[in-house]
Amino acid sequence: MDIELIAPAEALRRQRQGALIVDVRESHERATGFAEGALGIARGELEADPRAALPDLDADVLLICQSGRRSLQAAEALATMGYRRLASVEGGTTRWIDEGLPIARAEGDLDFYDRYSRHLRLPEVGEAGQRRLQSARIAMVGAGGLGSPAAFYLAAAGVGTIVLADDDVVDRSNLQRQILHTEDRIGVPKVESARIALSALNPTVSIETFPERITAANVERLIEGADVVIDGADNFPVRYLLNDACVKLGKPLVYGAVHRFEGQVSVFDAGRQRGHAPCYRCLFPEPPPPEAAPNCAEAGVLGVLPGVIGLLQATEAIKLILGAGEPLTGRLLHFDAMGMRFRETRLPADPDCPVCAAGREFPGYIDYAKFCAA
């Protein structure tokens, strides 16, 4: 049986005369828009049990997909099952929309489907994944070099709530790399400057500010309720506090660090995977003395380097929320900007780690501030 090929306008005319349009794309594809009045049922599901959706073999059925290829294949399959009045819409939904024919969208906020349309087209994200991002809460320490690109892309991706912790104010020397901030916000608290920038990018995201220096007294208050914690700190005492709190409360920690022309990223998830996944202390049991690890103000840093590392941190955070891909748990990714090379180091869990070893009780927070200043 030869399948009739029809233009979108003809499909609309026949639909108004009683024909049924069936959109055979996947649900994440239909979420971005479909021919008004069309029945949405994925091709595989339709071909597996066509009678469930199309009980009448003599019904006038017009099949549509994105471009016309899948709908033709579906029509050919239905023809072998006894359906007699079939047509495929040439050019599919793409041509339907280009010709200005009426479309509908899945129930919900129009901004949601427009803003995240490229995510919705990805089977690994789709509407369900985007809704997970929308309901997620991420706590970030640092609204500076690493926090700026990470927060920008997490807000753009639609993470529902971002909690930003930083007790510093914007300085002109920050502007070389801390892209959340601008010249006219010099002297403004960084968390407020970040809130302004992120809200302008995506007003649907809730930005909660935490303008406090992280201590043992407030670290749990910062990360409680968070699905993922991002470490954009610039000092060792805060890194250890974050690590220990994440182990205690069972939060995945996305670590990032930069130095001059090099950076590194990892995911520490020992709180949820005791004895299997390492924590930050498994990598660095104790902080180095200050002279062995100068900060950016002392050693300098290539301005674009925190952008690369911060974006990798945002990528890992999104993957963790979606439950997609392979996170950097148990792996340390090194980046050399001058050589433009990545290399990976495996990180096993330390069976003697004082914080994350299986069966070990939480030892309490250690104040490394005095140690580092000694």
Rank of each mutant, 00 (worst) to 15 (best):
D2A: 09
I6Q: 02
Q15R: 15
Q15H: 15
Q17D: 05
A31G: 03
T32G: 05
E36H: 10
G37T: 09
A38I: 06
A38D: 15
L39N: 03
A42S: 12
R43W: 05
G44T: 15
R51Y: 12
L54P: 05
P55Q: 09
R69Y: 08
L72H: 05
A77E: 08
G82E: 09
R84V: 14
R84Y: 05
T94M: 15
T94G: 13
L101Y: 03
G108H: 05
D109V: 14
D111M: 07
V125Q: 09
R137E: 13
R137M: 08
G144P: 13
G145A: 11
L146W: 02
G147V: 02
F152T: 06
L154M: 07
A157C: 06
V159D: 00
D167R: 11
D168Q: 08
L180Y: 00
T182F: 09
D184N: 15
V188E: 00
N202M: 12
T204P: 03
S206T: 14
S206N: 15
E208V: 12
I214W: 01
A217T: 06
N218I: 08
E220F: 07
R221I: 02
V228F: 00
A233Y: 01
A233D: 09
D244F: 03
V247M: 04
L249A: 10
P252A: 06
G256C: 00
A257T: 10
E262F: 08
G263P: 08
A270Y: 05
G271I: 04
C279W: 05
Y280H: 15
R281I: 02
F284Q: 06
P289R: 06
E291G: 10
A293H: 03
A297S: 15
G300F: 11
V308Y: 12
H334I: 04
F342H: 05
R346G: 14
L347S: 04
C356S: 09
A358Y: 04
A358M: 07
G359F: 04
P363N: 08
A373K: 02
